[in-house]
Design a protein around this nucleic acid. Structure first.
Length: 630
DNA sequence: TAGGTGACTGGGAGCTGTCT
DNA sequence: AGACAGCTCCCAGTCACCTA
């Protein structure tokens, strides 16, 4: 790790650099300059050319939707830049990536309102399911209900009860999660299929006939459906050729250190067992290729996903935004589970994944959380005025927010904690001064910086207790919280916290103009609801980095064209042929494995990379593009 | 009754120092 | 050098009460 840290590149510094994280993600993968950019580019191309079919469970505010919305813009941006060099580019296909959001799923009413809004952006083509239990046949649901542990049982007894549920679901997954299974859809007001086939969207009675964004599939001239994010009619590949991804931010309440820590005895074990057994069933049915999940770092991946190992290869990573150069605390564990029947992992072994990931994405923190204080004076004043109003103080409209006393904004307890945090802060600063340490990163460099440098604390947590992590790094977002900024001497607005988590809600004040799509729906929610959804949400740049890292190190198998495609691709640590070597060596190794004689996909990949290495077509060369990125 | 507000706990992971 | 105890750090949380 020391070597990795020593080689860290500088992280983002300005709001512009932070908000353009989607481009940074792609450049980190195909412009790393480690000799493997070309291979990663080609794997990504071959997956993206198929199109992505995305279903999400535990959707929350659909972080995966916002991630893909931003990444599609970044892919177009990269293609446009490459086109500027002239000639046919290796990344020209990035202009036309098809993404279909099949369904969302969440129990929460507030989250459902946001998800309905997203579906409405796409002619209500995206289904919305509620409780994961709703997708079970009645008999299965009743049986699980009967297995719920009594309220007053020991944790061991509760754990056993949930374990029994999990075991029963796994044993009965074939009929419980039959391919024709349905769930009540909150968009269409009827039972919609859990596994969507390519069929006219108008089959749903509540769906109005789409007026635009109708795309025809090459599989059948009469098969049409809506495709999220597309504006024109473009021929699509058959649904079976999509890369089919399930994303889930599984419930963490049993594992969060801020909760009861019930672990396997937590009631969230039941929906987790349902979700997990369905993933196994869908893999066996050949309708799902990849599962990306996210949870609190204490989520024990190996134990929780043990049942997936029969059908999936599982890779995981513990990572924090801070390791990507973001001054934000939010450590999480991310997993990637690949259906062994349809996908192969060609990245490093699990033991080397973290180091390899950081070689590509690791950045040194350059900025403090002050960079996210992007609200206008009017927005800040409106916020303070509303807060004061709830405390019974009506502030005059012509007042400057800088003149607003925090006595009018914060509750008595918050003011006491603010004072205590300030004492603790002064102690830290005086210690640093007496040590002669360079505290520039803590207190700034100039002016009155020593007294009002970047410093944040959650005023709902007592100093020294709870999630009390005061400092220049933004404390981890809980489902509530009041973050006070010392340098601005005001609370950090919820929308500023969203920016800190990668939601581009201030597109009008950055050079990355692709704003957050759910912003109108988000702004309608109360401050409390906004905080709760953020606390339950993802740090978008981190999960985007992980998702695309996984796609750059996976290949889709074509079993119709190859009896044993694994022979070339499924060796343990399958990509060791390329990591740490230059592209030329990688190519020869790839060729030695017989890739050109196996699946069509592998052949195309080999030929494409080979043409790159021989520079037969410099204009289309990924290598040239890589140079351009560097 | 649902949603908002405010005060607050407990335990796992990892670090550090001591002992054998 | 390894085992162990004790300490510190950290946390997509919980619950009681209030209000509309």
């Amino acid at each position: 790790m020391a070597e990795v840290r020593g080689a860290l590149k500088a992280g983002p510094l300005s709001l512009d650099e932070f908000c353009s994280w989607p481009v940074t993600v792609i450049r980190s993968l195909i412009g790393a300059g480690d000799g493997d950019d070309g291979e990663r580019l080609h794997r990504l191309r071959f997956l993206l050319q198929r199109g992505l079919w995305i279903d999400s469970d535990y959707s929350g505010v659909a972080g995966e939707y916002e991630v893909m919305h931003q990444m599609l813009q970044a892919l177009k941006h990269i293609a446009l830049e490459a086109a500027g060099l002239g000639g046919e580019s290796a990344v020209s296909c990035f202009n036309n990536v098809k993404v279909v959001h099949g369904r969302f799923c969440d129990k929460g009413k507030q989250q459902q309102d946001i998800l309905k809004y997203i579906s409405s952006l796409h002619n209500n083509s995206v289904c919305l399911f509620g409780d994961l239990n709703d997708r079970l046949p009645t008999a299965a649901r009743q049986l699980l209900d009967s297995m719920i542990p009594e309220t007053k049982v020991t944790p061991a007894e509760a754990k056993q009860a949930y374990s029994n549920m999990s075991q029963w679901l796994m044993e009965n997954r074939a009929w419980v999660f039959a391919p024709a299974g349905t769930s009540p859809c909150l968009i269409h007001g009827t039972d919609c299929p859990l596994v969507k086939s390519v069929e006219p969207a108008s089959t749903s009675p509540a769906t109005p006939p789409p007026k635009r964004r109708r795309l025809s599939f090459s599989e059948s001239d009469t098969s049409k459906m809506d495709v999220a994010g597309e504006e024109e009619s473009v021929p699509l590949a058959p649904a079976s050729s999509f890369l089919r991804v399930n994303l889930a931010g599984t419930t963490c309440t049993g594992w969060s250190s801020a909760g009861k820590g019930l672990h396997f005895a937590d009631p969230s074990e039941r929906p987790h067992a349902i979700w997990l057994a369905e993933r196994v069933a869908r893999a066996e049915q050949g309708v799902e290729d990849m599962v990306i999940s996210e949870c609190t770092p204490r989520y024990p991946v190996k134990e929780k996903l043990a049942d997936l190992e029969k059908t999936h290869e599982i890779i995981y990573l513990h990572i924090s935004p801070m390791q990507l150069g973001w001054p934000v605390r939010r450590s999480r564990v991310f997993t990637c589970s690949l259906n062994r029947e349809s996908m192969a992992w060609v990245g490093p072994d699990q033991s080397a994944v973290a180091d390899h990931f950081l070689q590509l994405f690791g950045r040194e923190i350059q900025a403090t959380a002050d960079v996210f204080l992007a609200a206008t004076d009017a927005e800040v004043f409106d916020f303070l005025r509303e807060r004061a109003s709830k405390r019974g103080v009506q502030l005059p409209e012509d007042m400057s927010w800088q003149d607003v006393s925090m006595q009018h904004v914060y509750a008595p307890g918050q003011l006491v904690r603010l004072e205590n945090y300030e004492k603790a802060r002064q102690e830290v600063l005086s210690e640093k001064h007496s040590d002669g340490a360079d505290d520039a990163a803590v207190a700034g460099d100039s002016g009155p910086s020593r007294d009002c440098g970047a410093w944040y604390a959650d005023l709902e947590q007592n100093p020294g207790h709870g999630a009390s992590t005061p400092g220049p790094i933004l404390p981890s977002a809980l489902t509530h919280g009041t973050l006070h900024s010392w340098s601005a001497n005001r609370p950090m607005l919820p929308m500023e916290q969203y920016v800190a988590h990668g939601w581009n809600v201030f597109a009008d004040r950055t050079s990355w103009k692709h704003g957050c799509e759910i912003l109108p729906a988000l702004q309608k929610r109360s401050m409390c609801q906004q905080k709760k959804m953020l606390g339950n949400g993802w740090h978008l740049p981190v999960i985007a980095s992980w998702w695309f890292y996984c796609m750059c190190h996976s290949v889709k198998l074509d079993r119709a064209a190859s009896i044993q495609p694994e022979r070339t691709l499924l060796r343990s640590g399958g990509s060791s042929f390329s990591l740490g070597q230059d592209s030329q060596q990688s190519l020869s190794s790839f060729g030695d494995c017989g890739a050109a004689t196996d699946s069509d996909m592998s052949r195309q990949q080999f030929q494409s990379v080979a043409s790159d290495s021989h520079e037969e077509n410099p204009g289309a060369s990924p290598r040239r593009f890589v140079r351009f990125l560097q």
